[in-house]
Computed example of a mutant assay.
Amino acid sequence: MRKAFAFPAWAPPVAAMVLVLLIDTILFPSFFQLRLVDGRLTGSLVDVLIRGTPVALLALGMAGVIATRGIDLSVGAVMAIAGAVAANALAGGASWTTAVLYALAAGLACGLWNGVLVAFLKLQPIVATLVLMVAGRGIAQLVTGGQITTFDDAPFSALAGGTIFAIPAPILVVAAVALLLTLLVRSTALGLMVEAIGVNPRAAELVGINTRSIVLAVYALSGVTAALAGIIATADIRGADANNAGLWLELDAILAVVLGGGSLLGGRLSYGLTLVGAITLQAIKTGILLAGFPPQMGLILMAVMVSILLVIQAPALQQWLQRRTLRKTAS
C-alpha cells in the first residue's frame, strides 16, 4: 500500500503568488527593483502592496466570516460609510483621531447589524449582508449630502501618504492588522472555534461553543476592517466619494480569501495566507496592465477565476477526488 502524499496547506497559495510575480517580472524586468525617493521606498512591488491595501484589509475581515461558512457582501458599502463619516467629521472641524474613531465606530455598528441578522435572526449571510450592501451606499450619500466631501488635514492624509522608516504607512497598517489578528486567533482558542463552526455549526454547539457570539464577532470584525479600508481610501484622495468608494471590492475580497486557500464551505482560517491571496490578486491586475490589456480585462479574469475556484471547491468534485485518491492509495 502506497502512502498518499499531500502538499502542505500553504504551498498552493504561495506557489500561485510566486508564479504571478515571476510573470510580472518577465513582463516588466525591473519589477522587483526598489528605490529610495525623498525618504520613501518606491518601486513596482511597493505599488502592488499599496494599491492592494484596501482589498487586503477587506479580505482580512472577510476571512473570518468565510471560515464560519458565511459571506459579507456589504464591505464595499461599509467602506463608503466609514469614509463619508470620517470626511464629514474632518470637514466639520474634528481632529483626525476623532474622525478615525467615528469611522471605526460606524464600521463596527454595520458589522454588528450584519452579525445580529445572521447569528440571532438566522438569515442566510448572502441575504443579510445584501441588505446593507444596497442600503449602505445610500447611507453614505446621506452623510455627505450627495456631494464629494473634501478636507485638508495633514495627519489624517498621512495614513495613506505617510511613511515610517521609509515604508509607506498603508503597508504597515495591513501588516499590523494581520499580525494582531493572527496572534488573537492562534494564541487563544478563538481560531479553532471559528473553524469548528465552519466545519459543523451543530457539532460546535454541542461541544459548548457559543456560536452566536463567535459569528457576531467575525461580522463585527469585518465591519471594522472595512471601515479601516475606507479610512485609508479617504485619506488617499483627501475626500469621500460615496458613489465609488469600495465599489465592487466585495468580489476582490472574496477572491483574495479563496486565493489564499480559504474555502467557501468554511472551516479554514489563515490571515497570513489571506495576505498572500490579496498580493496575488493585485499582482494579477498589475500584470494585466503591464501586458497592455485594458483594465476591464481584470473584471473578466476575476469572474473566470471565481468560477473555476467554485468548481474546484464543489462538494461533488471533492468527493470524487477523495475516492480517486483512496483507490490509488489502496492499490
Score class of each variant (00 low, 15 high):
residue 275 L to Y: 02
residue 17 M to T: 13
residue 160 A to T: 09
residue 290 L to R: 11
residue 100 V to F: 01
residue 214 I to T: 14
residue 228 L to A: 12
residue 98 T to D: 02
residue 81 I to N: 03
residue 204 A to P: 02
residue 176 A to I: 10
residue 52 G to T: 10
residue 92 G to D: 01
residue 103 A to N: 06
residue 24 D to V: 07
residue 187 S to T: 15
residue 211 T to H: 07
residue 269 L to T: 11
residue 299 L to R: 12
residue 39 G to E: 10
residue 117 L to I: 10
residue 190 L to C: 03
residue 48 V to D: 02
residue 269 L to C: 09
residue 43 G to N: 02
residue 53 T to V: 14
residue 269 L to A: 09
residue 17 M to D: 12
residue 63 A to H: 04
residue 216 L to F: 15
residue 103 A to G: 08
residue 165 F to T: 09
residue 23 I to D: 01
residue 119 A to C: 12
residue 241 D to V: 07
residue 330 A to P: 00
residue 256 A to H: 13
residue 188 T to D: 05
residue 85 V to Y: 05
residue 309 L to T: 01
residue 318 Q to T: 14
residue 227 A to C: 02
residue 201 P to S: 08
residue 30 S to L: 00
residue 18 V to Y: 02
residue 162 G to L: 12
residue 92 G to W: 03
residue 12 P to N: 05
residue 146 G to Q: 11
residue 309 L to H: 04
residue 296 Q to N: 02
residue 133 M to A: 15
residue 259 L to S: 09
residue 277 G to Y: 08
residue 111 G to Q: 08
residue 188 T to E: 04
residue 3 K to R: 12
residue 9 A to M: 01
residue 227 A to R: 04
residue 289 L to H: 01
residue 24 D to K: 07
residue 121 L to H: 03
residue 288 I to R: 06
residue 3 K to G: 09
residue 88 N to I: 00
residue 92 G to H: 06
residue 163 T to I: 11
residue 254 I to W: 06
residue 302 M to C: 11
residue 259 L to F: 12
residue 243 N to K: 12
residue 247 L to I: 06
residue 19 L to W: 08
residue 322 Q to I: 02
residue 15 A to W: 06
residue 278 A to S: 15
residue 65 V to N: 07
residue 202 R to V: 07
residue 7 F to T: 00
residue 65 V to S: 10
residue 140 A to Y: 13
residue 249 L to Y: 14
residue 204 A to R: 07
residue 126 I to V: 15
residue 32 F to P: 00
residue 242 A to C: 05
residue 173 V to F: 08
residue 39 G to D: 05
residue 38 D to R: 14
residue 191 G to K: 10
residue 277 G to P: 06
residue 99 A to C: 02
residue 215 V to G: 04
residue 232 I to H: 05
residue 114 N to C: 13
residue 60 L to V: 02
residue 269 L to G: 12
residue 295 P to D: 13
residue 28 F to C: 02
residue 318 Q to M: 09
residue 22 L to H: 02
residue 131 V to S: 14
residue 89 A to P: 00
residue 244 N to L: 12
residue 72 D to G: 07
